[in-house]
């Protein structure tokens, strides 16, 4: 199962209500993924700044880590530190060496993980329902023009914060994915990437989709081409959504195993596992259709 959702406001301002639309969609898909919920939202871009969301631990008692990470963060121009549940959020100065930042922060302690970094992107995810995510982070107040979300039904890996989705394209600012399905050549791909030195943070096969995309984008492929190569090089069942600071995209496997529907009007694009999610979040008269096998769509904001 699992439920995935995506929304792109074509006409609105940066102050758009992407958070409440995603929450409305996720709420309708809560029954598809009772284990955990998460969103990746793209807010206001501030020049020369990056936003970091850092996981302090699985149980939200990482105040000791938070203090240490603040000290490290300040070396990178960190400011506006705030702690919510298991997360430390702050803004820092844009850097060409994101790798150094990640390495330093994650050296603070074993459970510490950089969940997202981006000019616009912020990922929050945790165990529990969409309503719990709303209670913890107030996601309905998140402003922006686009974002993606996920409700998870775990099948093969543990239920915790790190294994929840969306996954950040680790080390690549402003790239996030959500995935419904199974990647059956996961172990093969993971071995290949690990031999090249890529670190995997989870046992969740969906993580490899993000790693795969980062690899293709770093090779200089365009977003559309990179996503098309998912159809050819990943095996198994997948409906995936991909979001960057400027685009929302989906891809569906060759056998059309997993559901995915979308609606496009002059005003917005909405994508979801089931139409019930779109109807729950967006009023009005518009048509919805299911994506076809191998279909790839990319919308730029």
């Amino acid at each position: 199962m699992c439920g995935i959702v995506g929304y792109l406001d074509k006409v609105g301002t940066e102050g758009g209500n992407v958070g409440s639309v995603l929450l409305g969609m996720l709420t309708a898909l809560a029954c598809r993924g009772p284990d955990s919920t998460g969103v990746a939202v793209f807010g206001q871009h501030r020049p020369d700044e990056l936003i970091a969301q850092i996981k302090l631990g699985e149980n939200g008692n990482g105040t000791e880590y938070a203090r240490k990470i603040e000290e490290t963060g300040k070396e990178f121009g960190g400011r506006e530190f705030s702690q919510t549940s298991a997360y430390l959020r702050f803004v820092f100065t844009e850097t060409n060496d994101l790798h150094a930042f990640i390495t330093r922060v994650e050296a603070t302690g074993d459970p510490v993980e950089v969940v997202s970094v981006g000019r616009r992107l912020e990922i929050v995810k945790q165990v529990g329902s969409p309503s719990r995510l709303e209670k913890t982070f107030g996601i309905s107040a998140f402003q922006g023009k686009h974002g993606i979300g996920h409700t998870r039904l775990s099948t093969e890996s543990v239920v915790d914060l790190s294994h929840s989705q969306p996954f950040w394209g680790h080390g690549y600012p402003d790239l996030a994915i959500v995935h419904n399905g199974h990647i059956t050549n996961y172990h093969q791909l993971r071995r290949r990437y690990e031999q090249r030195g890529t670190r995997f943070y989870t046992e969740n096969d969906s993580e490899v989709v993000a790693v795969f995309l980062v690899d293709k984008l770093q090779q200089g492929r365009g977003l559309h081409t990179a996503i098309e190569s998912i159809v050819r090089e990943l095996d198994g069942s997948f409906s995936c959504l991909v979001a960057t600071d400027s685009a929302l995209a989906f891809v569906k496997d060759a056998f059309s195993f997993k559901p995915l529907v979308f609606a496009e009007t002059d005003d917005f694009v909405a994508v979801a596992t089931e139409e019930v999610a779109i109807r729950n979040a967006i009023p009005g008269d518009f048509t919805v259709r299911e994506a076809q096998a191998k279909e790839v769509r990319v919308w730029s904001r």
Binding site: F255, S256, P259, T287, V288, R289, E290, Q292, A293
Partner: peptide, 26 residues
Amino acid sequence: HGSAGSGAAAAVRGGTVVIHGDAAAR
């Protein structure tokens, strides 16, 4: 009147199914 998702009219034994839009897989 719109489109239908995957598996439309699967295993029908009789009757008529009419889809004005597209049908997805299977």
